[in-house]
Amino acid sequence: MKITKLLSLALTAALPSLLVSPLALAEDFPTRPITEIVPYPAGGSSDLAGRALANALADHLGVNVVVDNRSGGGGSVGISALARARTDGYTIGVAPIGTIANQPHMHRTPYNTESFDYLCQFYYGPEVLVVKPDSPFNTLNEVIDYAKAHPGKLSFGSPGPGTLPHLDMLRFQQVAGIELTHVPFAGDGPGLTALMGGHVDLYMAMPNTVTDRNLDAVAVFSDEPMASLPGIKTVMEQGHNMTASVSGGLVAPKGLPQDIKQKLVKGCEQATEAEELKKVLARVGFEARYQGPDEFRQLVEHTSEVNGRLINDVIKKGGGR
């Protein structure tokens, strides 16, 4: 019968969603596949990083690591699902630092920095200040001088209000003593397009936008100049004391049994060494950089403190531009 065939086809297509398995506690952790929540849609840079890590982790732990994309709310939907998950080590998640450190200050979230066991940081990328095509600016100080003479005249795009690049630009304005106009977009895609079309003047982006999209950068916010960006000076070299980066790591809901946590931390440390992970991260503009559980937790807490202050003092008083 054609109709039954059709129905069975339909069911087969819907089946993967039904395969959420409960069951089994750990003695020889892990004995079944691990779910890795990625709080952004498939295909984005966080997702690619997360998928590469999942593959590398699977090699070290000997079970499948299944990526589960749960997007929405600047990543807060997926992260709160993670915070609510069981503390058996079978649900872990990729936490971009902005989602975990900034979002709780932006609005009410069912989690804060205390809700997690931190496993490791595995990716990092310094931010780069890029200018629109045919921009007259070649150095950071030219931008600053112009902005001082014309307060509010220059505009910068961001992937959204309260995101790391937005907050880092707020910080930069305070450091440099200038005033810029903020134009938020719905993610880097539309934002960078607007920069390329000359609709905004500046954008805080990842290093690969310079190499892949031929954009001009005036400064890189790293400690040291980057080999992949010859001729582009750091902010420090240009006389201003500031660094800024995007990073993220692996977290689990708080209360993981100690031995399971150790296994996951070990797995993450080894996974960060994987060539494949390094390659994928490099393609999306990050580099593989391992930090242990304590360092990662401290980084998140520090970011949360600094950005929480910025959010309360600047954005919530209507000065987020």
């Binding site: 929405g72 209000p161 938020p184 719905a186």
Partner: peptide, 19 residues
């Protein structure tokens, strides 16, 4: 979420509505 200020609109305190 308001796309410009980031404030929540009409979420009635329900977290899922914030997205």
């Amino acid at each position: 979420q308001d796309p410009v200020t980031g404030y929540l609109r009409y979420d009635f305190g329900v977290f899922d509505l914030s997205a």
